[in-house]
Amino acid sequence: MQQNKQTVKNNNHKILRRGVLASVLMVGFGFALVPLYDVICDITGLNGKTGVLAAENVTEQNIDHTVVVQFDGTVNSDLPWSFKPEQFSMEVVPGKLYHTEYVALNQSKADVTGQAIPSVAPAKASIYFSKTECFCFTEQLLTAGEKKQMPVTFIVSPDIPKDIDVLTLSYTFFNKNRMTAEQQVAGNASHEEIEI
């Protein structure tokens, strides 16, 4: 009987070790889902983020249908800028490179750095939409009152399904200055006092 108890005890501890290991692995799995999600989004266009294409990889092709591409600029209310596309929409032929510009203006009396985040609607169109040049790849610094043209060069893939005849490229500009750790904490603490 004593022997038996020892075996049971050993087996219990074996299960305990495996259980703990499994839980730790599952925490790792949880974190692994973050890059995995990005990969899935890249492949399926799940969240509407756009792809990037090096200019030399673009081969222009002629396609018989066109797609309307709309441009939209959103400014997060944390950022004292105005930001608009030069033209609202464009009819484009898939497989050809196009160029357009946005205009950003810092309306405040301080220098501010912004970062634009692109998004395409419908999300399923995003995998067929690539940019070869975009201001969203880097942070943008505008001095007080500065106005800046921001160019975008893009191509719609010839593989785009025929039932997508309109897509919107939208940029949201966020205030990068608000992104430092300290300010982030303060920014999220809605109960902290506004010093007035």
């Binding site: 599952m26 966020f174 205030n175 982030q184």
Partner: peptide, 25 residues
């Protein structure tokens, strides 16, 4: 449960350590 623990940990670091797991900006 570990996946939840991981997810809320990301919320914690987004909140206090300026990570951007869930922050579009």
């Amino acid at each position: 449960m570990p996946v939840l623990a991981g997810a809320v940990t990301m919320v914690l670091t987004d909140r206090y350590f300026a990570t951007s797991f869930f922050n579009a900006a």
